[in-house]
Simulated assay, not measured.
Amino acid sequence: MSFDEGLAETVRDDIGPLPGLTEKRMFGALCFLLDGNMICGVRADGGLYRVGKEAQAMATALDDVGPAIMGGRRMGGYIEAAPEAMADDATRARLTTLAIEFVRSLPPK
């Protein structure tokens, strides 16, 4: 698994200090979890955010953001952010906000 450590540091800064925040390698990415639920992940080819099914259309309307496809299957509630989206501060901030809002609605694992 490979990911961009510089981008991982940027995402750490985007998320900020949250009680219950952890990092774990999964989905071919370095993932950031809140109370055991995935917020987002950083991969060599962009990012993966868990925004929830209700916010998925709003998130994929952003430039360079699309549905997450893994193993040929669309992952409901997850979106993929291309490197261009991950390089845009406003897009990353919006995705981070959507993901944290969704994950805070879930019970801790």
Score class of each variant (00 low, 15 high):
L62K: 01
A57L: 05
K109W: 01
M58Q: 11
T10C: 01
D45G: 07
A44N: 11
R43N: 06
V11L: 14
L21A: 07
A29E: 12
L48G: 04
P108M: 09
G77D: 03
A85G: 06
A29S: 14
V65Y: 04
L7I: 05
T10S: 10
N37P: 06
L62V: 01
A87H: 02
M58D: 12
L30F: 10
D13H: 06
T97W: 02
D35K: 15
I79M: 03
F27K: 06
P19Y: 05
P17E: 13
M75T: 01
D89Y: 00
R43T: 14
F3C: 06
T96N: 13
P107G: 10
A87K: 09
R92F: 07
G41H: 11
R92T: 08
D45C: 05
S105E: 11
G36I: 11
R104F: 05
R25D: 14
G16W: 02
A82S: 12
P107A: 14
S105L: 09
A99G: 08
A57S: 11
M70S: 11
M86D: 09
V11S: 02
M38L: 15
C40N: 13
L34H: 08
R74V: 13
P17D: 12
T91R: 07
S105T: 15
L33D: 09
F32Y: 15
T91Y: 05
M75P: 00
E84W: 00
E80P: 00
G71D: 05
D88N: 15
F32E: 12
G41S: 12
M86W: 09
F102A: 03
P83A: 04
G16Y: 02
S105D: 06
T96Y: 01
A29R: 10
